[in-house]
């Protein structure tokens, strides 16, 4: 029964913070609301019996990724509000209508696939025997060991790519600055 109360406490916060994130004019406010949303998702993971992903969600998303976001926002200084006028006419209405259609479509698919009020959720304690971390490690390092190793290559390539993008080329910067017509500060 506790999960029922936790769900109905957390779900509105999750949806509202996500909606406010999309509507926020200030990028810093959007980032903070997204952190709230990540925490609510972590609680969902805990309700669903996935304590490892609960911790990883908080450490990786709410910790590392959002700090990176805030760092870039502060670095670029784009924390001033932006004008919200439309450049393509009717873009917002069309996007909202398409979004509603997508929600209805997924809702219909869920209703057809699982049913909206299936009372019995299968027992998870046998799967999580010995703790969620141990059970997950057993699956990860047996069946999915090769993909796990491949992610190390992915992370290395991502780090090299970020380094190449962030590199400041002095000659290139001068030409760009004169082309834009601004003096470098």
């Amino acid at each position: 029964m506790a999960d029922w109360y936790a769900f109905w406490l957390i779900a509105p916060i999750s949806i509202l913070s996500a909606g406010a994130m999309v509507l926020a004019r200030n990028a810093v406010h959007a980032a903070l609301l997204l952190i709230v949303n990540f925490f609510t998702l972590a609680v969902f993971f805990l309700i669903l019996g996935s304590s490892f992903l609960f911790v990883v969600q908080i450490i990786v998303y709410a910790g590392a990724i959002m700090v990176l976001f805030l760092f870039v926002i502060m670095l670029l200084g784009v924390d001033r509000p932006v004008p919200l006028t439309e450049r393509i006419r009717g873009q917002r209405w069309i996007a909202t209508v398409l979004g509603l259609a997508l929600v209805l479509e997924i809702g219909l698919a869920v209703r057809l696939g699982l049913g909206l009020s299936t009372g019995k959720v299968p027992d998870f304690s046998r799967v999580n025997a010995g703790g969620n971390v141990r059970a997950l490690a057993r699956v990860l390092f047996n069946s999915y060991f090769f993909p796990f190793e491949v992610t190390s290559i992915l992370l290395t390539v991502a780090a090299i790519g970020a380094m190449l993008h962030g590199r400041r080329n002095i000659a290139e910067e001068e030409t760009v600055d004169t082309a834009v017509g601004e003096t470098a500060t």
Binding site: M1, D3, W4, F7, A11, S14, I15, A18, G19, M21, V22, N37, F44, I47, L48, G49, Q91, R92, A95, T96, L98, G99, L100, L102, V103, I106, G107, V110, R111, L114, G115, L116, S117, T118, G119, V121, F124
Partner: peptide
């Protein structure tokens, strides 16, 4: 566990759609 799994899927659908609308609009 009394909460139906489909509720989580509906929350997930709503969050995904909000993200999609954000990508389209902002």
């Amino acid at each position: 566990m009394r909460t139906p799994i489909s509720y989580f899927l509906l929350v997930s659908a709503l969050l995904f759609t909000i993200g999609t609308v954000g990508v389209l609009v902002r």
